[in-house]
Design a protein around this nucleic acid. Structure first.
Length: 726
DNA sequence: CTGGCTAATCTTTTT
DNA sequence: GATTAGCCAG
């Protein structure tokens, strides 16, 4: 095994295979490389069988990447396949599918997504005659999640509750858990909690996995919560070959239960632990690291470390001060265009604190015709039409899934109202029947004749689809569902911008099913396996290798790297966010987020803020973020702001006589062209159109153009790739 | 029961 | 400002 390209600490980490090991890996220190090589080393040099190795990550993406990289290092593909490399959640699903019956759940349990959870809580509130305004479902759900992450069951929560609302929440928690149990449904937190419960209740099951996983790796250990910590401890108890990797300075998920103490106390948990520091950064220039180190140095509760880089010097950090968030977007656009002579779009990323901030940047990019891809934000899988379709599939798989059935019982509209649903639910809960079975006895419940006929038809249809599901591919089944239910025809009839986009999304969904169909043969289990897979997929995973500037939250950027990083909205109240400004602990977490953002950059950092911006429809003014002030001034390109905003009037103006910049072909400079209303134009991407309106002056002059094919768009006159016709 | 209106809430971050 | 939930009239 060739380790000659590794530094001393990396080699040490790879070769220290026995006993507990803590790797404190600074940003950009090559920790994934170390982990993958360590796994390969275990197999190749230590003769460890592949099925004895486990590696746990947080995201599917990280798991996939690690798998790919391990496979590349291991000659035998079959061996590589036997290594468990998965997320906490999918690992637990695998374990529970096998043995959850010990806890009374069906092995075919379904997994709830946040929307489902929300409707469960709402129905509980309704049953208890409680107002959703007084008791926010979100708050209750985060209470429940909190308890589960701490492995506190409803009974315990109840007994230790203090005060009225705490007591009430614990009772709702109890209801919630009972409903899930009756539906054989698990939420994300259950996956972890119930695995632990299973291990504790059935020691032989735990022992099986302890023997199986003799070498355990946990990535991003600083992000583990109490339950995950417990799970890892249980699994590693017997062989104690536990290797955890993390960086306490990059702990940014406290809000969802991550406990930074887990990594800080590792040496207390395992007094014989070997600790290795990876402090050699291979990613960023010295300027960038100096800035990041200076910022994070303001955190008091941390273990100081000394992150170094081989990349001396580097471009100074640019700052942007814009008037408004709109102007900020335009400034970003200018810089992106400017830099696109040297970098490709996919080398650049724009990071923000909250998804809502993407808007202004997107607008600017659209108008300037800069390609971009957004991570997160408007989530594909939480779109109505996708959720409806998934609910149909879930009901076909398991008609007793009340949560999904309730969603589709009147979708598309078939005249089943709230009253009927309520009656079915009530009758069902009294007689311990699912809604689906309750329909069969609808005559006794006092449901109108017409509704009964409709419901019978619905059941017929579902039964039919279910039969078909046994011999159709998922894609074919989806087509049948959309057809038989009339879902598509309703959308087609509607024929609005919105309905057309919904149809497009459903088509897009079929690319997902096709992919699945390619890897899986038609069988009785096909639909079940598909649904099980889908439950753990998130929008975060679909980071394609497409070209284009990446737009995402700073949270989503963890683990990634780009040549050029823009951080926008560096204002007090935005970042750090208003709600954490007066809590020292949370402020430190926010500062770690800044640290994560800065350390994503390889070559160049551009930090921006706006004098005022629109928040909740009101214009508000915020002062410079403290994080910006924490960067030593000598690292910042001082004169740039003024000079650049003048020069940037025309991004193609020669700068200071230097002519080394090559004009990228995709970009256009229309500043010499006069457009008037009624002019016919041709756009590189959108095709032919006619100018319907013009407003603004100079670089912010905008054209409203009605395109023959693509409809109306608003574009920046000077930058859009337009050609005047005739 | 449906569709349209008003009001409230939203902006943290996610498996 | 925009989406969404809840309310009310038809």
């Amino acid at each position: 095994m060739d380790l000659s390209l590794m530094n001393k600490e990396q080699k040490e980490a790879i070769q220290h295979t026995e006993g507990p090991l803590l790797i404190m890996a600074g940003a950009g220190s090559g920790k994934t490389r170390v982990l993958t090589h360590r796994i390969a080393y275990l197999l190749a040099e230590k003769g460890v069988p592949p099925y004895n190795v486990l590696a746990i990550t947080f995201t599917n993406k990280a798991a996939r990447e690690m798998k790919d990289r391990v496979h590349a290092l291991i000659p035998n593909a079959d061996d590589a396949h036997k290594i468990w490399i998965s997320t906490f959640h999918s690992m637990c699903v695998r374990i529970l599918r096998r043995d959850i019956s010990h806890l009374g759940y069906e092995n075919s349990f379904s997994i709830l997504d946040p929307t489902d959870q929300n409707s469960v809580v709402k129905s509980i509130l309704k049953n208890r005659n409680l107002d959703t305004k007084q008791h926010h479902p979100r708050k209750i759900l985060s209470y429940i999640s909190d308890k589960k992450n701490q492995l506190i069951d409803p009974a315990e929560a109840m007994s230790e509750s203090v005060g009225f609302s705490d007591g009430l929440y614990s009772e709702i928690y109890k209801d919630y858990q009972e409903i899930l149990y009756r539906n054989s449904s698990l939420d994300f937190d259950d996956l972890i909690m119930l695995t632990i419960e299973l291990f504790k209740k059935e020691p032989q099951v735990l022992e099986y996995y302890q023997n199986r996983f003799q070498y355990i790796h946990v990535d991003e250990y600083q992000d583990t919560n109490q339950a995950q910590y417990e799970l890892v401890s249980l699994l590693s108890q017997k062989y104690r070959n536990i290797c955890v990797v993390g960086d306490s300075d990059q702990s940014i998920y406290k809000f969802r239960g991550a406990n930074i103490e887990n990594i800080l106390n590792f040496e207390d948990d395992y007094p014989d632990a070997k600790v290795i520091f990876l402090e050699q950064n291979y990613r960023s220039t010295k300027t960038i690291l100096d800035a990041a180190n200076a910022v994070i140095g303001n955190n008091t509760s941390r273990k100081p470390k000394d992150l170094r880089t081989v990349r001396q010097g580097g471009k100074k950090i640019k700052t942007i001060l814009a008037d408004s968030e709109r102007a900020e977007g335009q400034e970003i656009l200018r810089h992106v265009m400017d830099l696109s002579s040297k970098y490709s779009y996919s080398d650049m990323a724009v990071l923000y604190r909250a998804n809502s901030q993407s808007r202004a940047v997107e607008d600017a990019f659209v108008k300037g015709s800069v390609p971009y891809k957004m991570i997160g934000g408007m989530k594909f899988y939480s779109r109505m039409e996708i959720k409806d379709l998934m609910s149909y599939l879930k009901v076909i798989q398991n008609p007793h899934d009340d949560i999904s059935f309730e969603r589709i019982i009147n979708t598309p509209k078939r005249g089943i109202g709230l009253k009927t649903v309520e009656k079915l639910l009530n009758y069902g809960s009294v007689n311990e029947l699912s809604m689906y079975d309750a329909i069969k006895e609808a005559d006794f419940i006092g449901i109108p004749k017409g509704a009964i006929v409709t419901l019978m038809k619905l059941e017929d249809m579902i039964e039919n689809l279910r039969k078909k599901s046994k011999f159709l591919s998922v894609t074919e089944l989806v087509d049948e569902v959309l057809e038989d239910t009339g879902y598509i025809s309703v959308l087609e009839k509607e024929d609005t911008l919105e309905s057309r986009s919904r149809i497009e999304n459903l088509e897009e969904f079929k690319t997902v099913t096709r992919e699945f169909d390619n890897d899986n043969d038609v069988s009785d289990e096909l639909l079940f396996n598909f649904l099980s897979d889908m439950a753990l997929v998130s929008d975060q995973d679909s980071v394609e290798a497409d070209s284009g500037v990446t737009l995402m939250t700073m949270h989503a950027s963890k683990g990634l790297e780009f040549k050029v990083i823009f951080v926008v909205g560096l204002e007090e109240g935005i970042f750090p966010s208003q709600r954490v400004m007066f809590d020292e602990d949370e402020l430190e977490e926010e500062r770690r987020l800044m640290y994560v953002a800065l350390t994503r950059a390889e070559d160049q950092l551009i930090l921006s803020r706006a004098d005022s911006r629109m928040i909740y429809g009101k214009i508000e003014s915020n002062v410079e973020s403290r994080f910006l002030k924490e960067i030593p001034t000598e690292l910042i390109d001082g004169g740039v702001v003024e000079i650049d905003s003048k020069k940037a009037q025309n991004p193609f103006a020669k700068r200071g006589g230097r002519t080394h910049r090559r004009t990228p072909t995709v970009l256009t400079d229309n500043s010499g062209v006069t457009f008037k209303v009624g002019d016919k134009v041709a756009h590189k991407k959108f095709g032919d159109g006619i100018i319907s309106n013009i407003k603004g002056e100079g670089d912010s002059k905008e054209l409203d153009i009605i395109f023959t094919k693509e409809g109306p768009k608003r574009l920046l006159a000077n930058f859009a790739p337009l050609e005047k016709k005739e």
